[in-house]
Design a protein around this nucleic acid. Structure first.
Lengths: 345, 345
DNA sequence: TTGTACGCGTTATCAG
DNA sequence: CTGATAACGCGTACAA
C-alpha cells in the first residue's frame, strides 16, 4: 500500500482540468472560478490530498528544514536548548533535523555534508570538544550559508554567536563565595579550547582580583571530561595535599561541583560549613540533593529559541547577517542554595 | 551566493558528455570507460559536487529520513532514547527529524501531517499523555506505513511496540521493599491511561499479593504530572492522615520518588530508617542525592536503538511487520541504593 | 561505451 | 478563467 498518495495530477484527471488549475485552486489564486475552487477542494479533501514537500523543495531549492548539530542530546542543558529550537521552528513552520556529534570532529563534518545534501535552509550548531579548526564552518559562511552558533561558539569572521554571559555568571558565583567568607576558591575548569571555559576562568579571576584576592593559578584545575567521577578524584587529590587548603569549589559545571561535594564528604568535610560549593548550569538535581547545590542557571530554552529566531529571520531575509557584529548574550542567574551559604562565619 | 552548488549537468557540460554518463560514472556503473570515470570524478571533486538528496527523494519517493515524535525532549529518559535513535539512524545512513508534542494531542496529529508531507520513510513514536484515541496511527498502519512505538505504546492492531518490562521492574522494586521489611507501601502512580502506568500498577499489586500482603487501593495514588512538587504535596497529605501510616513509597518515576523523600524529610521522618523509597527510571541524580535513591533503571539508549533497528529493517524490507506479534520487551534493572535499605529489621 | 528521453510532483510563465 | 509547457536534479529504459 502506501503507494496511493493522491497528487495534484490525480485530482486534475478526475475533474478533467489541468494540473495548473488544481494547483491554483488549492492556493486560492485570483482568477479561478469559485465553482472550480470548490470542486477541487472538495475532491482534495476526499482523496486526503497532501502536498509533497519534497517536490516543493526541489522546485524552490528550499526545504523549510533546519539542521541542528549538537555534541550530545543526553545533557540537560542541550536538551533544553533543543526544546527551545523545536518550539520556535515548529511555530514558524520549519522542520528540525538533528544530529549529535558525540564530541567527534569527523562526525561534525560528515553531518554537515549530509545536511547540505538535504538542502537544509540553515544550521544551528554547537561544536564538539574535538573541534580545533573551523574551516568547515568558514567555507559555508563564505558561501553565504546561514549558520547560527550557540553555547560553544567559534571565534571566526561572520559567525553569529548566541551564548550565555559566562563571564558574568562566573563572576557572580565567585563574588558570592567571597562574600560568604570563603577565601581559597578552587575553580574546576572545563576544556581550555572552549570559549565558554575561558570566559568562566576570566570571570573567576576578575572576581578574585576585584575583591582583593590574589589569583593562584594552582587553584585552577582542568576537568576535561566534566563528569562527577572525574572531579571527585581530582578534588580528593587536592584535599590530600596539605599545601592547598581550599575552602571552596566553583565548578565549570554541576557534575564537577557534585563530584567535589562527594569528595568533601568522603574527606569528612562539611558543606557548606567547611567548604562552599557552587556549580554551573542549574541542572534539575541541584534542588534535590542535600545540601542543595547553588548554581548559575543558564537559560537553555531561551538560547535555543533566540538562536532559531535569528536563523529563521536570516533565512527569510528579515535580517541581514552583516548587521550582527557582536555575540548575542543571554543573562545568567545565580541561584543560591545551601551549599554555599554559611550560616555563620 | 550559495546558489552555485554544482550539479551533474554542470559536470556534463564542462566535459562535453551527457548527464547520464556523469551519473553513471559517479556510481561506478559497468560500461563506462575508465578514462571517463576518472575525468568525471576528478571534476566532481574539484567542483565539490554533492548529490542533491531532495531530487533523489523525489525520484525514489524515499527520503532516507525517519520521523521521531516524542512528548518532551527535556526528559532524561527520552533524551537517552533519542540518543539511541540518532546513533543507529546515523550509522545506517538515515536522517532523523524530530518533533516534540509537549504532551498535546493536536500537536501530535499535526506533526504527523507535516512529516507525511516530507515523505518520511517511517515513524518512531511515543504518544502524548493527552492521546486517548489512536485513529491517526491506525490509518497510517492500515496504509502500510511503518511505525514503531516505544515506551508509551498503544494497544491497537498491527502496532509494533518496544517497551521496557514495566511489570517486572515494578514487581522487583516492590518485592525488594517488602523484603526489607516495609509493609504499607504507597504507589505514586502515573496517568492511568498509559499502558506503562497500568503495567507498573499491575506489578505493584502482584508483588504484594505474592508476598501475602493484601492490596489496599487507597495506597495507589495517581500523580498525573509526575513532578517532584506535585508528589511532595501529595505525600505530605498522605503522611498527615493518621489512618494511612505508610512506611514506604514506590514512585512511578524518580521525580515522584524524590518529592516523597522531601515530604518525609519535611515531616521529620528518616529515609530509609522510617520510610523506604524507590523510584523508576534511574535518572542521573539518583546517585547524587543523599541518601542515594534506589531506582528501576530503564535501558533508554537500547530502547531507541532497538526501535530504530526494527523500523529500518521494515523500511528496507529485511523484516516483515506481520511477523512481529508481540511487544518487544527490554529488561529493567533494579539499582539498590540507600533509600530503600534498612540496616536492621 | 555513450546519448536521448522521460518521469518523480509542483509551480511560474506564457498563451489562449 | 484555464491550459500547455518548462524546469528543479537525478536515474534509467531504450536506442545508437
Amino acid at each position: 500500500m502506501k503507494i496511493g498518495q493522491a497528487t495534484i495530477k490525480d485530482i486534475a484527471r478526475e475533474l478533467n482540468v489541468s494540473s495548473s488549475t488544481v494547483s491554483r485552486a488549492l492556493k486560492d489564486y485570483p482568477g479561478i472560478s469559485d465553482e472550480t475552487k470548490r470542486k477541487v477542494k472538495e475532491l482534495a479533501a476526499k482523496l486526503n490530498y497532501r502536498p509533497n514537500a519534497i517536490a516543493l523543495s526541489l522546485r524552490k531549492s528550499r526545504s523549510f528544514t533546519i539542521g541542528v548539530i549538537i555534541p550530545e542530546v543526553v545533557h540537560f542543558f542541550f536538551s533544553t536548548v533543543i526544546s527551545g529550537i523545536e518550539e520556535v521552528a515548529y511555530s514558524r513552520g520549519y522542520n528540525v533535523i538533528l544530529t549529535q556529534t558525540n564530541e567527534k570532529f569527523d562526525r561534525e563534518r560528515s553531518s554537515i555534508e549530509t545536511m547540505l545534501s538535504n538542502q537544509i535552509d540553515g544550521f544551528l550548531v554547537s561544536y564538539s570538544k574535538e573541534t580545533q579548526e573551523f574551516d568547515h564552518f568558514s567555507n559555508l559562511l563564505d558561501q553565504g550559508y546561514p549558520i547560527v552558533f550557540f553555547d560553544r561558539v567559534p571565534d571566526i569572521p561572520k559567525a553569529i554567536n548566541v551564548m550565555v554571559d559566562d563571564y558574568r555568571g562566573s563572576y557572580d558565583a565567585v563574588s558570592h563565595l567571597i562574600r560568604q567568607g570563603y577565601k581559597r576558591i578552587v575553580h574546576l575548569a572545563g576544556p581550555k579550547n572552549l570559549t565558554i571555559s575561558k570566559e568562566r576562568i576570566r570571570g573567576y579571576k576578575d572576581a578574585l582580583t576585584d575583591h582583593g584576592i590574589q589569583v593562584d593559578e594552582n587553584l585552577i584545575v582542568e576537568c576535561p571530561l566534566g563528569t562527577d567521577d572525574e572531579s571527585r578524584k581530582i578534588t580528593a587529590e587536592i584535599l590530600k595535599s596539605p599545601a592547598q587548603k581550599p575552602d571552596a569549589f566553583f565548578g565549570n559545571n554541576d557534575m564537577a561541583a557534585v563530584g567535589a561535594m562527594m569528595a568533601c564528604r568522603d574527606a569528612g568535610l562539611k558543606v557548606p560549613e567547611d567548604v562552599g560549593v557552587v556549580g554551573f548550569s542549574n541542572w534539575q538535581f541541584c534542588s534535590m540533593i542535600e545540601p542543595g547545590l547553588s548554581s548559575v542557571a543558564q537559560p537553555g530554552f531561551q538560547m535555543g529559541a533566540k538562536a532559531t529566531e535569528i536563523l529563521l529571520d536570516i533565512i527569510e531575509k528579515k535580517l541581514d547577517p552583516e548587521q550582527i557584529n557582536e555575540p548575542i548574550t543571554l543573562p545568567t542567574e545565580l541561584l543560591i542554595r545551601k551549599s554555599s551559604v554559611r550560616t555563620k562565619n
